[in-house]
Write a protein that binds this DNA or RNA. Structure first.
Lengths: 344, 344
DNA sequence: GTTATATTGTAAATCGGTTTAGTATGAATA
DNA sequence: TATTCATACTAAACCGATTTACAATATAAC
């Protein structure tokens, strides 16, 4: 079991000091007036023996890690999985590594994860924040650590964030349903006080108010067990047979909704029109294909990472925070079109 | 900006040595005969000031990190995202944190990630390995680092792994199609020499050979751009109109397949019966619902993590490797049932 | 012949912990 | 009284890098 080679070994092999090796490896040879000859010798040896600096030791000393901590709500959710994937790619290109974790919107777990990230000296944070973590995020920022939020934000904390125009998105989607002639339009969502969910709710309400229609709102508590989402949803639909259209607040509840609709044997869009927030394969492939509000995941990931990199760039200090709001696309498909007799 | 409190600060505040503090915090007080009185005092102060040991320094000294490195093929793939999520949960309960990365089946990237994990001193590795990393994995094992593979394995490396019975699964699925009366059964998959893909291919071939049917095999090169998967798939289907059933090798190609089938306007199962490896929402919700080979993701995750924890348990040395093969479930749905006239 | 000034490098401190090897004290034993 | 032993704790080395402050030598300037 050959012990790993360290900077001291390199220094000893060449009979020089490890200081010199360190300077050379960190590109400070010229500044420190190390002769070109020696530089070459060191670099050659380093390459030969495949020496890699121990980044733990490096981080301990410098406080930097080239690692970005990414906290999503749930990595098994397609929206977050996609964003995570794109961010990982972009960061990788720039020499950063990502470590990610799911928060489950659990404040305790999130604080624990922040602590872990923190003493692992991650250089920056990307997060879809749960509630009640304002203080800890403030603390991070005060310590000079860049934080970029996405999907939602904390209203009382002045950080950079990248979100979409949730309110307009649901307003627009609801308007679409109204224009198609639907009038008893329900909004089914998870119970949440996060900004994105509040905005989505507001968009829906505004559209209904404008059209003088009565809102039908059903909030369901999130649960990892899908049955506990489908059950109340099913009960609600059975109790309100008059509803002729549904707007779902997220992809996950939309997916559960489709399962319930199948179980109940309802026909889409004859019995019920459907629109969901977030777009993914299930909605495209369901028949009839489901109208969905598509978030620009690539643009979101790009913006997140470039905001963070800008903050990480030490030269660039006294920066102001940037709040970026991107627009969504309403992908209109068959599930929300007034039912027309097929040409036979 | 209040500097973070360190073990020396704790020691100084109580006028004792940091050694003592360290012993107490690591539960070695009794062994080291530290008086209960002092132990209490230290623990009280630690709690009061909220001191948390710097785990970087800790890892640097001990070589342990309580972190497990998880390498999946692509975290945005539902199968891997689910496994990752379950593993994260299980590990979290046991006090381990997970850092995960997507390998893209890219050998270079994977080696780079192993290097990163390694000098971050992760305690153990879980990976769905790409090809040509045998040497590096051997190196890890020789250094005493536990490695658990899943989804596939490296035939020439003796490690623990958790896989499913791929060969029987596709054999069984193909048999099912044959029994339903289909005879021109295609197998559409990604080009791959990974064990799981070879086994799936073998299962398909064996079933056909047994039934004396001709195989129709289409291999497509993986690409992140979905269009480059759908295009050749579409061409293949158009060129082979005789095919009456398809077995897809993975969820991703299955999903792409469904999109192509929709585009071509083919009727499932009248024109074409469908079965896919892996099961997820898309297959359940597609209409007709798609028969799929469901991997026991929870059992896979459980087995992976308990294998790894067993290895991490230092008491338990001179262990032999364990190779676990789990069985899958063929969820038979409408996409593969002989078409029967609906009762009108 | 000194004194400045580059040139080329190095010794030692540091990051924040853990671990080894030992010390100081009092009580028990020979 | 001298020796052993248990008790309660600590100094210093160490993990592997970076960084600060300084040293040794040669050359140029006065």
């Amino acid at each position: 079991m050959n012990k790993k080679i360290s900077i001291v070994d390199i220094a000893n092999l060449l009979n020089i000091s490890k200081t010199t090796v360190s300077f050379i490896l960190n590109g400070r040879a010229q500044e420190k007036r190390i002769s070109e000859e020696l530089v070459k010798k060191v670099l050659k040896l380093v390459k030969e023996v495949g020496y890699k600096p121990n980044s733990l030791a490096k981080s301990l000393r410098t406080g930097k890690s080239n690692i970005i901590g990414l906290m999503v709500e749930d990595i098994s959710n397609p929206f977050f999985a996609n964003i995570a994937r794109l961010i990982e790619d972009r960061a990788y290109e720039k020499g950063y590594r990502i470590i990610y974790c799911s928060t489950d919107n659990d404040t305790e777990k999130t604080l624990d994860l922040i602590t872990m990230f923190r003493d692992r000296h991650v250089d920056g944070y990307i997060m879809a924040p749960p509630k009640n973590i304002e203080e800890d995020v403030q603390e991070l920022i005060k310590s000079g650590l860049p934080v970029v939020m996405f999907d939602r934000y904390l209203p009382n904390v002045d950080t950079d964030y990248v979100i979409v125009d949730n309110q307009f998105s649901t307003y627009n989607a609801t308007r679409h349903l109204i224009e198609q002639g639907y009038s008893k339009i329900a909004y089914i969502t998870f119970t949440s006080e996060q900004t994105q969910m509040l905005d989505r709710m507001t968009g829906y309400k505004n559209a209904l108010k404008e059209a003088k229609l009565k809102p039908y709102i059903k909030e369901i508590d999130f649960n990892r067990n899908e049955e506990l989402i489908k059950e109340p949803l099913s009960v609600y639909l059975k109790k309100n047979p008059g509803i002729d259209a549904i707007l779902f607040g997220t992809d996950h509840i939309g997916t559960c909704g489709l399962k319930v609709i199948n179980q109940l044997g309802l026909k889409v869009p004859q019995d019920l029109a459907i629109v969901s927030f977030d777009d993914y394969d299930v909605f495209e492939l369901y028949s009839p294909s489901v109208t969905a509000i598509a978030q620009p995941v690539e643009a979101i990931a790009d913006n997140i990472i470039s905001l963070l990199l800008k903050k990480l760039d030490a030269n660039n200090s006294n920066q102001t925070t940037q709040k970026i709001t991107l627009s969504t696309t309403l992908n209109i498909r068959n599930s929300s079109k007034q039912f027309l007799k097929p040409i036979s």
